[in-house]
Design a binder for these strands. Sequence first.
DNA 1: AAAAGGCTCGAAAACGTTTTCGAATAGCTA
DNA 2: TAGCTATTCGAAAACGTTTTCGAGCCTTTT
Lengths: 335, 335
Amino acid sequence: MVTLKDISEYCGVSNSTVSKALNGQKDISKQTAQRVRDAAQKLGYLPNSAARSLKTNKTLNIGVLFVDKTSSGLRHEYFSGMLESIKSAAESKGYDITFISRNLGERQMSFYEHAKYRGCDGVVIASVDFSNPDVIELVNSEIPTVTVDYVYDRCSSVLSDNLDGMKQIAEYVFSKGHRRVAVIHGENTSVTQKRMASFRSTCKRLGLILDEKLIKEARYHDPKLSALATREFLDLDDRPTCIIYPDDFSFIGGKNIIEQRGLKVPDDISVIGYDGILLSQILRPKLTTYKQNSVEIGKIAVQKLIEQIEEPSLSIPEIISVTGKLLKGETVKEL
Amino acid sequence: MVTLKDISEYCGVSNSTVSKALNGQKDISKQTAQRVRDAAQKLGYLPNSAARSLKTNKTLNIGVLFVDKTSSGLRHEYFSGMLESIKSAAESKGYDITFISRNLGERQMSFYEHAKYRGCDGVVIASVDFSNPDVIELVNSEIPTVTVDYVYDRCSSVLSDNLDGMKQIAEYVFSKGHRRVAVIHGENTSVTQKRMASFRSTCKRLGLILDEKLIKEARYHDPKLSALATREFLDLDDRPTCIIYPDDFSFIGGKNIIEQRGLKVPDDISVIGYDGILLSQILRPKLTTYKQNSVEIGKIAVQKLIEQIEEPSLSIPEIISVTGKLLKGETVKEL
DNA sequence: AAAAGGCTCGAAAACGTTTTCGAATAGCTA
DNA sequence: TAGCTATTCGAAAACGTTTTCGAGCCTTTT
């Protein structure tokens, strides 16, 4: 391994001069700086990040806390897309990313301990059980954190704009003339609450009374449960003219039931999804859905986190809402 | 930050004693060891991994090289599933994982340089362009590596058994009486070569002549191209009775064309996929497909890598094939 | 010509750990 | 009691880097 010392001997200067030259300090003459850089290049020098971070107390490493509670964690495109953009946003700023988990080998540690042990400069938290005490410990710690799709008062958060999403969906559906609109929603999380509140308020604003029988709970990313709810809706005497699904993937479950009944989308019943995953735009008829901008969300989360890391003083908790886009497919019929 | 020193002062012993006690060295009496552990617990001590790895030259950190050439990298379930299992297998052995990429901030570096800079103890390489010189540099370096779905002679590799996959698919299809079987395959990679070689040899073994017109190239995870190929197959005078797709997701493209022609699966035409993604088992009719065991692949890759890291001497390059499983759905008709 | 100021550079300490090696003590044997 | 071994511990060096502070020199100012 070639170290600073090798370069300093090669160039006949001191350790500190080499260090300063390579780090662009300007109390080194242009000539020596160049000479040092050339030598570093020639000898194939790479700084030792462990030594560096031991000294500077920075690692240029950010943790990502991603727990797949439903075992569909990264399998969900919303999260895999976000992870990719977190990764590339971090890299463009010179940060690497490391997964944070609860256990390292036999040693059981909390998320906070893990992040601290690894010396993460900050952590992006997403897709976890936010009521978990371990998560709360991390958020309340001295380590900078940014949460995604959940708001704590102590740290910045980036939210997919579920209010806008459901509002756009509702307005669109109603504008197409639908009045009996069913909603299948996910498990009771803050995301779900936002979406339903938005749906209700949009109804109210448009002067529509909504039938509580047309609201059913299922789970995100669970086509079976959505299929069940769909069946119940179709069994109603006055069945809805449109069904809103908790997400695109869940819609597939509903689709099976609809086709099994010999019904056609959108002629016999309209449907609308959420997420805008690749599949939704491949299906025929093309699914009408609200595309969450997971890429932007990941990017902003990292930006905010890095701001907080590098300028802790002038960074106050912030809540940023990222709107998506209604993809008008072919699954909502004009009545 | 509480350090070894704090504990040593608290306990009235030396630095080294504390270190040895916490690391379970046995030249420390049981009593002092216990006293030290208690103090560490009480003071909330966490070792500083930077200092530790500076000294030991180990980081307990393994890199993951995952490039999304097709922009569908992690969006592909095969890879996201593998990533998750890599993550959990690594964690269970006490290793963290870090993504390796080419650029850190402005500084452009090769994969090898990045891995070395971060001090990765080893790297799992998957889903990349294996002919990339940067990848080759990494494999040939002193850093232990394990590749997935590609074989170099210098390092161990874990392969999804594409020979078995295509063999099982072909045998199954033929056993159902199909004789005009079309194949849409992915871009020309070693994976594709294996699958096609397996298909051809299975045909030969079964004494079947295969019509070269029934073989077309598309791309993995690209429903549009598969749709195109499907159209061409359906336009043939003597169209195939079964189409084998490069992957489940691509099948969706073909499905659209088939339905557009008013044909029904499997009554009018049989189809079969590859991968066994969640979607495939949700679709109705349920897709017949070969489920690659991405979870097992990730797990074994990590195991082999860690063996190589911890016992470099007795670890010789090994090629491990992981078989999957034919999921008999409802899309292949008995002729 | 002396003082002041700006450029370059190096010595040395420090970050928190692990590890070697020798010292001290205790227990045992003869 | 003398000598020997086993046990337990500590001093100190080392890992590779960054950073502070002062020294030396050269240029400019007064």
